[in-house]
Amino acid sequence: MAAIYSLYIINKSGGLIFYKDYGLAGRMDTNDSLRLASLWHSMHAISQQLSPISGCSGIELLEADTFDLHCFQSLTGTKFFVVSEPGTQNMENLLKHIYELYTDYVLKNPFYEMEMPIRCELFDINLAQAIQKDRVAYLGR
């Protein structure tokens, strides 16, 4: 079993720029993944509106019946979120690590256009390693 089911990265206007599936249920339809990403972007914004206290920065963790969704928003508005097994710990660190990989291998790539879908081989390789490492740590527990 995998600890992580899927990873999404959305740009500051809600467009899906990266999607990877690690689960067993099969890859989601491209149109559906785009729709889910922009839906999440809007829900994240609405949750800030409904806060009873000022200074709300949106949903960090959504607990559903069969999965947990952890979201991390960078200062520039790019959102990273992973869908994991319920109760999976340490996802904040994984998300921060993925953000580091993104800054190193995507943003520093001179051929990458901002806000566009991510197609960087080095990012893919390092991401696969990070996920693998996380999975080993998960199984070792």
């Binding site: 949750s47 806060s51 206290i53 920065s57 949106g58 949903i59 960090e60 959504l62 019946d65």
Partner: peptide
């Protein structure tokens, strides 16, 4: 369908 039971932000 799959529903949710809670979500958390930094303020609530």
């Amino acid at each position: 369908g799959c529903s949710f039971h809670s979500f958390r932000t930094n303020t609530y």
